[in-house]
Design a binder for these strands. Structure first.
Lengths: 218, 218
DNA sequence: CGAGCCCTACCAAACGATTGTCTGGGCGGG
DNA sequence: CCCGCCCAGACAATCGTTTGGTAGGGCTCG
């Protein structure tokens, strides 16, 4: 009888959109509210209000609230991972590449603060099926490989655990979504550079030489 | 008429407990379920089931679900901050103290995984009033002060931003709750030590000396 | 060119289920 | 007899979701 949304859903494609526009707007609004209040505390009513529509009308665009979260997370997941991989493919010395990756990842985070917040904070609110389609460990793998590559360089500590190091790097960088505000005193560039210096220098061997100009104290 | 919970609530003390025991059990159960499903996705029914009681009966112990979350978070907040401050007060070289703090903080996290998860993940689900009573920035301040102290040592980079560095340290450490599992391959001690070495070494000046035994390549 | 039609985008209203919370009472031990 | 602890049951509110309908723009086709 009713033939709403006739097309049988082309696999993993977004639910529906005659020609995007409004669909992107919906994703943006949902992401913003999810980021502010959390997925579970967000009502379809909240979203519909800002979208300028009755809450029931949202079902013209989505199949469920679950799926709406998935669509939001999916887009950020893909873009973020692509960004990371592009950075990791830069034609640089492995050590400098790590620096660029950290800096670039922080820049991406701050530049996509809303989406990243939803990705990082609401990831485990996804249904098991949805979560399985977004292997978030890929992020870790990319960085771990980079660390392992860098260990070919004799300046790099040979006893680093690439996985553990990658988790530390991603932890420090991802944590930025918890405190960064665009009107803060530090620019994304300063943050990225500081983090890159701190973390990459931490991976390098300390060539044990006395500090010049100061006799040992204490 | 009804005189349930007669005492007018002694300020910040937990809601009620004739003599703890069962109250602690309730906190533990709530923390565990909050950590697993998230605060908003957790039902009082879930908690009551595990507590062996009808959901209405929980109101003998709590005044609201909000407050239950607060009590859970408060206990972890206090204990965690006390732990951090104790570590920071160790009688050590400032640089070694930083190492000890990072290691000790990671150990605390892994040792109180459930509570820490709730604290770090559900903190902004607290009501504004509750949140105001737990100034979480204290954590950051403790570490930032430590970094600033360490900068008296000439081995430490003088241009470090203590606040930014503290945020990186806490980010890396706190992120551990996202991936650590007690049955993983790395022990809390290994993780803490690795993080301390990575982060503290990153704060130290690299005494620019050529790598011994290898001529410059590339 | 105009009549008819379809399809998108939405409305209006209701649904069943769930949730946090409240009321009043009962039981058992000190 | 009192009081801590819990039960039984209900409450209103809210939520995600469903159903059937409709305005209107654009397309087709005579």
């Amino acid at each position: 009888m009713v033939n709403r949304r006739r097309a049988p859903r082309t696999g993993t494609a977004p639910p529906f959109r005659s020609d995007d526009g409004r669909w992107q707007e919906l994703l943006d609004i949902a992401a913003r509210i999810f980021a502010r209040k959390g997925y579970r505390s967000t009502t379809l009513q909240d979203i519909a209000d800002e979208f300028g529509v009755l809450k029931g009308s949202l079902y013209h665009y989505i199949r469920s609230k679950d799926e709406l979260l998935f669509e939001v997370v999916r887009s950020v997941y893909g873009a973020g991972l692509a960004n990371l991989r592009a950075l990791a493919a830069a034609d640089l010395d492995p050590v400098d590449r790590l620096r660029a990756v950290i800096r670039g990842h922080v820049l991406y985070l701050t530049d996509n603060l809303v989406g990243t917040t939803v990705l990082l904070h609401e990831f485990d609110q996804l249904s098991d099926e949805h979560r399985a389609r977004l292997p978030i460990r890929e992020y870790q793998a990319v960085v771990a490989d980079l660390v392992a590559d860098a260990q070919a360089d004799p300046r790099v500590k040979p006893d680093l655990d690439p996985r553990l190091t990658a988790l530390a790097v991603l932890g420090a960088a991802n944590w930025v979504y918890r405190w960064y505000r665009p009107d803060g005193k530090r620019s994304p560039d300063e943050i990225g550079a500081a983090y890159a210096d701190l973390l990459v220098d931490g991976m390098l061997i300390r060539t044990g030489a006395a500090v010049p100009g100061e006799p040992a104290e204490r």
